[in-house]
Amino acid sequence: MIKSKTSLSILVHVVLSILALSCLIPFFILLMSSLSSETSLLRYGYSLFPKEWSLKAYEFLWMRRVMLLQAYGITILITTVGTIVSLTITSLIAYALSRRDFPLARIVTFIVFFTMLFNGGLVPTYLIYTQVIGVKNTLFGLLLPGLLMNGFNVLIMRTFFVQNIPVEVLESAHIDGAGHFRTFFRIALPLSYPILATIGLLVAVGYWNDWYNGFIFLTDTSLFNIQSVLNRMLSDIRFIATNPVGGAISAAVAANMPSVSIRMAIAIIAVVPLLTVYAFFQKYFVKGIAVGAVKG
């Protein structure tokens, strides 16, 4: 009995370790490739341990720091503004919907829920944002489409308010003469830091990782965020990966484009800040995802 128990737990650890490693190793290859010399990469390919170490890729990036820092700056700006605005409008509507004494709550909740079921898709969204709102080649193109608020977050936050803010507290605030806005800012929000942190983190990751809006709404490279830069470089690789016959053309493109290790170095630079934040706020991430499982 005891023996089978320990062998079972060993099996569990073996399977989970393999899984965990398979999630980690690709990042490791990415990192090691960025630290390999160009010639060894071309000869031996991407591998777990560099045959020849080299910091050339990072030196090259350091020389291009003005362009990269600008892309970084845009990513940080959009992520910060997007997350703050998102939390503000999400918590406001979620709080209103959580109040039982708001007679329109049911119908507004339905409107929010409906957006989770049905959407217009790329073409209408693209045309509305470019033709009607006019976000093409502006920073609003990175900020507004898709990411600012979603029905899921509203419903999760509403559920949190309903479950965690006692009605008596709200009522006594009202009796003491506090208006609804004052009650929201002074009582409801301070009680809601956990949910604000969780949803804030998820929204921030969404903005940090977003390449899609840049892909669709930006052609002006001076507005590119770090993911758009990465994406642009990927399309250079694309050309070579998918045209193996056109050797002469490929060589010409290869001469101009960032070398193999530099591409991986940029990917590392885009990933590292996120992983650092993740290391500190891991708990909130896990909670945030788990919270999403609770029915809205």
Binding site: I89, L92, I93, I128, I133, L144, G146
Partner: peptide, 19 residues
């Protein structure tokens, strides 16, 4: 309190629906 959120849903979700 609902207005900013609803305004965003109007632009992001309902106008494209009309589209």
């Amino acid at each position: 309190m609902c207005i900013p959120g609803l305004a965003y849903l109007l632009i992001n979700n309902f106008l494209p629906l009309a589209g």
